[in-house]
Design a binder for these strands. Structure first.
Length: 486
DNA sequence: TATTGCGGGCTTC
DNA sequence: GAAGCCCGCAATA
């Protein structure tokens, strides 16, 4: 039974969770003998102990958009989640995914970001705040103590994952590259035309400089502008695509950034890091579609379930999988033309659907009040904000594929999933995130460039994947690549 | 220009 | 008193 397997792998889970400590303890566990691999998407009431030289931990990185919060304790860095920026019109990208942007950390930048329109449908952008910690944003705590970096998360994100920081940065840099390369090309063309003209007429009468003619490109210099994650040619033919770029006065000079796929990490269906478990009735929580999703069938309700039948477990908790489910239902709902956003009470807790335990009417990923302390992965008794005791949450039976995991402790289960070697679950697939994939390997960070630096090379590799390859082939290639490169 | 970390100060419970 | 939040500042990329 799967339970045995769960118990077997449970010991491989977060080392930080094995020890009894709290971020506010006067003394942290002395000289940890083990360390956890860095987790980009911590979720739930979890604790990790990272090596002191873990770069990502040193930078207090997170896939979630976390802003600094003053906790009046200089020893402990506290961050709270900003949520995710989505299209207020709840539109679907041509591939069936939804726009889920990373909120700007800076307040000003975030306000500016929200004033922008959805690049897909021109609706307003909406910030979905995180209320996963008793109605408040999920908080992350970082503490450097000795040679270890202690991490503690409190709350379960009740919203989809935004674009990760590295993806945002990569997208921006890719756009800048596109702009600069296109400008250079344009300038060359202009110069060559000027030369031809001069040669032909003997004198130059054009008073416009080439740089002036390039002003039209400035519209793209705002790299915070959300770029659609569309590698598909179909999208480039779509009305929305035309509307977007025609409105930008680019009828003649449309840069085909998505077609060339300079950085598939940006434009290709979003990698969700780490493992993917193929689980019917679960979908990927990724804000971007999966590589192998058959978009031609996306409008079929039944097929939708299967085609998206994946469970991203790169994050730590089952919560993400809950999000996946609700996301899918969200998709179904929108497909049916119903209102996407529903009622929400003051505490950010939502009505559960009668048809699905995780469905929520307010937003796709606001599910069943898991945002509330009513049913987190672990039922948390908060004595104070910083002192948290854990009680086993008597959860409903959670189904994974054909196996049923009667989860005594969802958190440990999620850890197990997160840490499960591929061999344990035949259906576990490796997706295409360097970060989490790397985590399956021994500590080799130090000799490697940072994630951001790795993106390009990685993306070049992914670009080279033949589109006709089936997903399994791609996964195998990716896995091979990661083992070689990371 | 945006991010990040720090810290003062206010409010709520 | 703990915690959440807002704000400003400075360093940095």
């Amino acid at each position: 039974m799967a339970t045995d397997a769960f118990e077997e792998v449970d010991c491989t889970c977060s080392y930080g969770m094995k020890l009894n400590w709290d971020i506010n303890d006067p003394k942290m566990p002395q000289e940890p003998k083990q360390f956890d691999h860095f987790r980009e998407w911590p979720d739930g009431y979890v604790r990790f102990i990272y090596r002191g030289d873990e770069k990502n931990a040193q930078r207090h990185l997170s896939g979630w958009a976390m802003r600094n919060t003053n906790n009046h304790n200089c020893l402990i860095l506290k961050k709270s989640c900003l949520g995710v920026v989505v299209c207020a019109g709840s539109c679907y990208l041509p591939d069936g995914s939804k726009l889920q942007l990373r909120p700007a950390i800076c307040d000003k930048a975030r306000q500016k970001q929200q004033k922008k329109a959805c690049p897909n449908c021109n609706s307003a952008l909406e910030l979905i705040p995180c209320r996963g910690h008793s109605g408040y944003p999920v908080t992350n705590f970082w503490r450097l103590d000795g040679k270890a970096i202690y991490f503690q998360a409190k709350g379960v994100h009740d919203h989809p994952r935004p674009e990760s920081k590295s993806e945002t940065e990569a997208r921006r840099s890719a756009i800048k590259r596109q702009i600069s390369s296109h400008q250079i090309q344009k300038k060359r063309n202009m110069e060559s035309q000027i030369e031809q003209y001069q040669d032909a007429s003997g004198h130059f009468t054009n008073t416009l400089s080439s740089s002036e003619n390039l002003e039209g490109f400035n519209i793209f210099t705002d790299t915070s502008f959300p770029i659609l994650a569309q590698p598909y040619s179909s999208f480039q033919k779509s009305d929305s695509y035309k509307a977007l770029y025609n409105s930008a006065c680019f009828q003649e000079d449309i840069i085909p950034p998505f077609q060339k796929c300079p950085n598939p990490r940006i434009y290709v269906p979003r990698p969700t890091c780490g493992y993917e478990i193929t689980v019917p009735n679960y979908i990927n929580s990724s804000p971007f579609p999966n590589l192998y999703k058959d978009s031609s069938k996306k409008h079929s309700d039944t097929d939708w379930t299967y085609l998206n039948g994946q469970c991203s477990v790169n994050s730590l908790s089952t919560h993400d999988r809950n999000l996946d489910v609700s996301s899918k239902h969200h998709g179904r709902k929108a497909t049916l033309g119903k209102t996407v956003y529903g009622q929400r009470n003051d505490l950010g807790q939502f009505q559960a659907s009668t048809t699905h335990p995780y469905y929520n009417s307010e937003y796709s990923c606001r599910y069943l009040g898991n945002a509330s302390p009513a049913a987190p992965a672990l039922q948390t008794v908060i004595t104070t904000t910083t002192k948290v005791s854990y009680q086993a949450y008597k959860s409903p039976v959670v189904k994974y594929s054909n196996n049923v995991c009667d989860v005594k402790n969802l958190q440990s289960c999620s850890h197990m999933l997160d840490c499960t070697p591929r061999t344990v679950y035949p259906e576990v697939k490796l997706q295409d995130d360097c970060q989490e994939s790397k985590s399956i390997l021994p500590y080799i960070d130090e000799s490697l460039p940072t994630k951001g630096e790795r993106v390009e090379a990685w993306d070049v590799y992914r670009c080279g994947l033949a589109p006709e390859n089936n997903y399994t082939d791609q996964v195998d290639q990716l896995f091979t690549c990661e083992n070689e490169d990371f």
